[in-house]
Amino acid sequence: MYYESDEEIEDERKWNKVRERNIKINIAKQLIANGRVEEKSFTKQDLKDLFAFKESDILYIAPNIFDISGEQYVMNLTFSEFIDKIIQSNKAVKDALLAAEAEFIKLYSPFREEAERNMFGVYAGDKYRKMFEKLKEFIPIIHWGRLPIFNKYLIYNRERDPELETIEFYEDPDCLNALLKEVKNQGIVLSNKSDNTLNKKITFKVYTRRWGHENTYSIKRTVNGWYCKYIAIRGECKKNGEGGLFMNLDHDSVFYPKEGVAYAMEKLWEDADDEVIDFDELAKRIQQIADWISAVEKSTGEQPEWVGY
Rank of each mutant, 00 (worst) to 15 (best):
E38A: 10
I289Y: 10
D6V: 13
S80L: 06
K184Y: 06
F279R: 02
A102H: 08
H143W: 06
E10V: 03
T78K: 15
L147C: 05
E270M: 11
I68D: 05
L97K: 10
F111N: 02
K94Q: 15
S56Q: 12
Q88C: 05
M131Y: 02
C175F: 05
E114C: 07
E305W: 09
P257T: 01
I68N: 07
G243W: 03
R285L: 11
E302N: 15
A33K: 13
E101Q: 14
N177Q: 03
V307C: 13
L47I: 00
C175I: 02
N90A: 08
R13Y: 10
P110S: 01
A96M: 15
T43V: 08
K24M: 11
R158L: 13
R285N: 12
M119T: 10
T166P: 10
E81M: 12
Y207M: 07
E182W: 02
I87C: 05
P304M: 06
R19A: 07
C237I: 02
S294Y: 06
Y108N: 03
K284T: 03
L77M: 14
E259K: 14
M75H: 09
F246T: 06
E81Y: 02
F138M: 04
D278A: 02
F204L: 09
V183S: 01
E168D: 14
K91L: 12
R285Y: 08
N26I: 00
S41N: 11
L135Q: 02
E182T: 02
I25L: 12
K29S: 10
D95R: 15
T203R: 12
Y108P: 04
R234L: 14
R160Q: 13
G187F: 02
D250Q: 15
Q186E: 13
S80H: 06
C237Y: 01
I289G: 12
V122W: 07
V18K: 07
M119A: 14
